[in-house]
Amino acid sequence: MRQDPIMQSALRLGDDALILGQRLSEWCGHAPTIEVDLSLANLGLDLIGQAMHFLGLAGDIEGQGRDADTLAFFRTDLDFTNCLLVEQPNGDFAQTMTRQWLYSTYQQLLFEAMAGVEDARFAEVADKALKEVRYHAELSADWVIRLGDGTDVSHQKMVDALGWLWRFVPELFQMDELDSLAVEAGVGVDKAALRPAYDAAINAVFEEAKLTRPDDQRTLTGGRHGHHSEHLGHLLATMQHIPRSHPDARW
């Protein structure tokens, strides 16, 4: 079946935000301090707000009567189009913050560019969310610096977190045929072109955090086409079981 690049673009944006938001919500009540607990829950809330907009838009474009909730709760892992980075488990606090920083730094550049696309439905959400995303990027970069340039233990945890997560970074900037069509349609951004600015931003933080940029590894990819790690299924099971068990339930 030929996929609509505009609908798929909205879906990819919505899925990234939804899955990362769900991951962050897993910290609720478990973070090391109440301030951190609040931060992670609020970051998650912002992301789920973005997911509502993008998934709602995807459903509107599709025109089959699926709304944001239907897309979030009634699709299986094979139909999710999020990147692999956001579905990685929280791990320890260092891994959560590293994942956040690697993603938010990318998302900030993406939304800065998307705020200028022709299609107002995409540009307006990007422009609206950009202010929140800048805050996420700043907050997570602060933690990367604090942990990287902290104790021997916190530094080692950052090295380990980067060692695992680095392999998922190239996927963020990959362009497939749908992405190219989305650029032509005035909804998408040339993600590959964002990489130099991304590298400049993260290299500056690496330096301040006294961390060494990891060597490039064999890239893991496929999330945009539904090829996910086993972790996504477990996340979806937790997220979806109530609406699937009680599909008629209302607030």
Binding site: L38, S39, D46
Partner: peptide, 13 residues
Amino acid sequence: EISRFGSTPCKAL
């Protein structure tokens, strides 16, 4: 600043 987030998304502590 004690915390970058407070009791609601729009506030810091």
